[in-house]
Design a protein around this nucleic acid. Structure first.
Lengths: 174, 174
DNA sequence: CTATAGATTCACAAATTTGTGAAGTTAAGA
DNA sequence: TCTTAACTTCACAAATTTGTGAATCTATAG
């Protein structure tokens, strides 16, 4: 872990500690950004920590140590992250330890689809059109909002596809 | 208010009450969706209420009555909504009352840009690349994530432009 | 089959967030 | 200028959320 950095600093303890401090500072800042966007705090911290891990993978114990939190907190955060499909559990055969891993290629779409948020919102708005009457001004406004949500949902899928293409193209050329 | 609906139900008190109940049920459901997505609860309720109002406008007193909340709560929610540019205050000259109004044509973009969330995230990720070292695997992962955020930000602007076009086209043809 | 590492669940305490009443401001109207 | 309607701010109480230690569960190793 952090081999590169250790080398840069002639492998001194100070160098390693400095590296860890910088890494930790970044993790907290990133987590804080995510939390501001509505993500629960521990979930954000664990996710940030995983994303910053050299191979995108950490065990429960490693997470607990790096973030200074209890195993229970790790467990709760992982449950949440697994639910929203940003992380998955990986059981190494022949070990009791479980490793948690960032879905590097799909967490973007999980982030965007957020439990079908837009689709659900559109359905709710549709019920509003019925409730308020489709010929009222309010009904018209809700209908338009509904259409926007569906439009957005659709476009987002296009964006993800384009990103995958771009990514694939870059991978092929390098 | 709700003229259409009153007509539908022969203007009976029962009809009006029924309409109000349905409207309120929708407002709460919509607010709940928004709250699930990370929006603060009162902000969501006030916003949903405004969006459902016949002309997209209500006074502080009307909001307090419809949502059964104190003037202080209205004030707090409006402060928040104004800050994220989803609602603005409108002072009718020659009146002490203030009206709050949904930015019908711009709240989508406010919703999407959410205080430059993506740009900020990209900046944070960039600092992570520096902290972890750009030649490490983690650094590479963060850089890619940063690129995705910038890509997404860019694409979202395109989407909004397309939506405006679509909207304009429809308005012209009807 | 048993012992135990390791993850999860649960009840509770701490911390945070939220909404209220009351006091304080601001500006319209007399 | 004075009065007062209407919005805002503030301190606090209520409610919610969060993280912990302890107990519990699961499945690997022996």
């Amino acid at each position: 872990m952090a081999a590169q950095r250790i080398e840069d600093t002639q492998g001194t303890d100070d160098g390693l500690r400095e590296y860890e401090e910088k890494a930790s500072a970044f993790v907290e800042r990133f987590a804080s950004d995510l939390a501001d966007a509505g993500m629960q705090r521990m979930g954000a911290r664990v996710f940030a920590c995983l994303l910053s891990a050299e191979d995108g993978t950490l065990t429960s114990a490693e997470l607990a140590e790096r973030l200074r939190i209890s195993p229970a907190a790790v467990s709760g955060a992982i449950r949440y992250l697994a639910q929203v499909r940003m992380v998955s559990r990986r059981r190494t055969p022949g070990s009791r330890r479980e490793r948690y891993v960032v879905h590097e290629d799909t967490w973007y779409s999980s982030m965007i689809n957020r439990e079908h948020f837009l689709t659900r919102l559109a359905a709710t708005l549709n019920s509003g059109v019925t409730a308020l009457g489709k010929d009222t001004e309010a009904g018209r406004r809700l209908r338009e909002t509904e259409e926007f949500m569906l439009f957005l949902q659709d476009e987002l899928e296009g964006i993800l596809a384009r990103w995958e293409q771009r990514r694939a193209a870059r991978a092929a050329s390098s």
